[in-house]
Amino acid sequence: MENIIEVQHLSKSFGSNEILKDINFSVNKGEVVCIIGASGSGKSTLLRCINLLEKPTGGKVLYKGRNILDDKHDVYAYRTKLGMVFQQFNLFNNHDVLGNCMIGQLKVLKRSKAEAEETAMKYLKVVGMDQYINAKPRQLSGGQKQRVAIARALSMEPDVMLFDEPTSALDPEMVGEVLAVMKELAESGLTMLVVTHEMGFASEVADRVVFMDKGIIEEEGPPEKIFLNPENERTREFLRRVLKQE
């Protein structure tokens, strides 16, 4: 299996506060990997280190076998290969729905206007937002915003999509529409790395589940194993806690 992203001995500190400690894991082509873990365990930080929104303190991040932390590596070109979906959507407020999905294609990938529009429409259709191309972000509901944000990332046609708790900021009735889109994407064979608190989604969609606690990967494996037969005491404790809540 071709691995797209591989993280080796990754560490990250903010000042003297060590958030990630010796993280090792990889994401293979076509795989859906879900990261679960308690709040503050470093899940977002890990995702942000992978696309270099945060600079790792130590270790390596390999993209198709090449260390992107090398000074020579073009960070901006690398980031176009990763689609990022944020908890807070972060749609560009000065662009409408179509503009959000086109601006990166036009200015970063240098695609023609016609091609950018066609690609944007294709992915807006995938997320079911093609009827709203003229709407400004402030005119959309949370679920709609997040679906546009997914289309914006897909429009760059990245090799892997990173999701950082894409449904955590949504009202309960809108979680379903976003998860449905993500499920569809997973089934289409897209490579995905998803930080989530949605255990149902993780157990249903993930090929592999990674459990993080206090900046360490405590356990990883197929969802059946993690959810039904966890070996690690911390994993068990975490799952007992969250599953009781649900």
Binding site: N51, L53, Y76, A77, R79, T80, L82, G83, M84, F86, Q88, F89, N90, L91, F92, N93, N94, I103, G104, K107, V108, L109, A149, R152, A153, M156
Partner: peptide, 29 residues
């Protein structure tokens, strides 16, 4: 919002493009 910068960086925009196509239009408004 910091999220505007991060979203622009995440799709591969450098500082100049981020300012030009995302931040400055909002600032002017």
């Amino acid at each position: 919002d910091k999220g505007q910068f991060e979203a622009a960086h995440a799709i591969g925009m450098n500082h100049r493009k981020t300012m030009l196509y995302v931040v400055i239009p909002q600032v002017i408004r």
